[in-house]
Design a protein around this nucleic acid. Structure first.
Lengths: 229, 229
DNA sequence: GTCTATAGCAGGATAGAC
DNA sequence: GTCTATCCTGCTATAGAC
């Protein structure tokens, strides 16, 4: 415990505090003075361990963000079980669960999404890192899992777009929590998150169709076939 | 022309350049020196016209962002026509069109989404402003338009969640363009945007169901009814 | 109304003692 | 390895000339 505890290793403390601060305030708004003070280290330590501020930021992604994303993916796979999934519902629900509930604490999830949200708005080197190590491989994986449930004539692009539609919702309900809370007048408590998982699963599988009485559905809504152009 | 042209009025030039810079680099990364130089004004002009940097930022939202959002909403309403919509497809397609194609130039759209994406990641006073003047009212409006197509037993929350699901996708494909481009290996040209509108419409109406052969759909997929908990 | 010059402060990085 | 003191740069905001 004396040697292994993360809190005893200055470098680890710096990474933890840096992540907390970067996620809360963004790269530019955080100062190295702030980080080293929070980590109870001296001002020079950041330069000593990481060379400079920017590299500390990248290291946060390499040593904190990426491993945590991997934990979410593992949760998803565990949720899904070992054998090949036998229905779309399973896959989509596991996905929504892994992201909305998942293995992360509320605090971890907040950090995680804040960091990547900022990268989406204003990509830096960290975005490349994440694309290559996490997003890309995971989308490939999902593509493989969901492909069997889609007609073979769909193009690769259409398969990917379907996956991204699901992703879009899962991500939105995760990191636009401020907006969602305001519009639904709901806190993100356990009950609400559970309702969200259900809703996202339902919507992913049948879209607004889930909410339509059969007669209206057949009456007013011609079946929409995705164009291939 | 001499008096009315926007480029002749220093205040307007400042707003334009400030918006461009804030959207590109984020509030903290931009300096007032940079803005005043870009707008061909002197350093003191920003304090003269807007008091301080923060208020200039807010004014960008008030005088540029909000009116532009209104133009998108007008486009949506025009696309929809005057009378009450007769199908969900109409509404959803108009919505996707308004956002993905819409009345904005590529440059305007880029600015628009960058600015709000940053606010989502790290809300400031500008976010409150946007929620109150734009997002809130527009979601109410959509709620009214889509309500007739959903079963009456749905709660207000479920209606709103459906709307947010659609929103989520539309927004994601707008401001995660970097990520989408990378994953689909596609530039956001006119053809790709047209395919996106089709795809989003299809997905919103029928979810992954659009992509499933009927026998699989009925076989492996029990109808998912949204829980009300 | 417009501009220049500058006050006053905070940031990242580093040199060099221990 | 750790820390303090400090350098240099660049920021916002303002005072005061024109």
């Amino acid at each position: 415990m004396t040697e292994k505890n993360r809190k005893d290793i200055p470098r680890e403390r710096l990474l933890d505090e840096a992540e907390a601060l970067f996620s809360e305030k963004g790269y530019n708004a955080v100062t190295v003075r702030e980080i080293s003070a929070a980590a109870d280290c001296n001002l020079a330590s950041i330069n000593y361990y990481f060379g400079n501020k920017k590299n500390l930021y990248l290291e946060v992604f390499r040593e904190r963000w990426v491993p945590r994303a991997r934990r979410v993916h593992e949760y998803f796979h565990k949720e899904l079980g070992d054998q090949e999934p036998s229905s779309l519902t399973e896959v989509v629900k596991s996905l929504a669960l892994a992201f909305l509930e998942g293995p992360l604490t509320d605090e971890e999830r907040r950090r995680h999404h804040q960091l990547i949200a900022r990268e989406l708005a204003q990509p830096t080197e960290a975005f490349d890192l994440v694309s290559e190590l996490v997003t890309g491989p995971f989308c490939q994986k999902l593509s493989g899992l969901l492909r069997p449930f889609m007609p073979p004539e769909l193009t690769k692009e259409q398969v990917m777009l379907n996956i991204l539609c699901i992703f879009a919702m899962v991500l939105y309900f995760n990191f636009a929590r401020v907006a969602v809370s305001r519009l639904t007048d709901q806190e993100y408590d356990e009950a609400f998150k559970a309702r969200l998982v259900e809703h996202l699963t339902g919507f992913s599988l049948t879209g607004l169709g889930q909410a339509m009485p059969a007669e209206l559905k057949l009456g007013a809504e011609p079946r929409v076939v995705p164009t291939k152009i």
